[in-house]
Amino acid sequence: MNRNRWLLLAIGVLVIGSLILSAVFARDWRALVRGNIGVITLTGGIAEGPAAVLGGAGITPAAVRRLLALAEADPRIAAVVLRIESPGGSVAASQEIGGLIRDFPRPVVVSMADGVASGGLYISVFADRIVAQPGTITGSIGVIMSHIYLGGLYERLGIQAEVLTAGEHKGVGMEPLTPESRQILQEFLDDLHRQFIQAVAEGRRLDLERVRAIATGELFTGQQAQALGLVDRLGGLDLAIEEAAELAGVAYPEPVDITLPAVPWWQTLGHFPSLLLDRVSVALLGKDALLLRQQLELHLLPRW
């Protein structure tokens, strides 16, 4: 071998050797190829569709399903951290999301941000672990529902509305509440409340009576929630990533954000008619009209 080849060999050994050693010293190979802890950020109200008015409805079952599917399809993702900021939202959508988290085949850790209350807590209890800051606002294990009777408004507007129903209690939502209809709706809410309590007890492996005692709808700080067994560890996203790595047996956690593909700008134009309708409503009828529309969307819609 001539001098050039010897020199080339020496350069090759130096360069390739450095690359291999860098990879060994830097982190495990799976992390080098890509992150091994998927981080999914869920922010906003929980609702079936993004058009709902519940706090902006940023968390939908469809979006969570797609995000978890992305994580599951990537064999390098050993565990998932859900970074949640949510005041809660609609009941069935929360249950749908809770089921998706429970059935995810790899460890899931929730990292609570500023506020994860009510439905936000509901979906969190299906994770393997929950990490919150001492000052995180959580709790609110309860159910809420509004009943709006529009008779006074119709009268003011000179509209005579009559409600015809078939079925003894079909018109509960359309008439002023009677003691009987109030009891029906209360039982309805109580059943949902029991479902919430049951989910928390099972998810957090807590005694049912103990959960029932704290399920008054009151808010807790992260620190109080830890003492009550609703939260495992106090800390931030980094701690949640460490917890996820521990559950998955990953020695060198390397987080990677899992996000949905960006929506092309021309698809956002689909919201334009709705925005236009809002503007026209406000211009013609005043802000009260918009407020009324929002209230009607929440009418008899149980939320947690």
């Binding site: 450095s18 690359l19 860098s22 990879a23 830097a26 982190r27 992390a31 080098l32 190829v33 890509r34 992150g35 390397e254 990677v256 954000d257």
Partner: peptide
Amino acid sequence: GWSSAVAAPHNADLVGGPA
């Protein structure tokens, strides 16, 4: 490219990994 990915894996994540 591979050296950059080793030194700063987050940059590699932006394009989908070192490869």
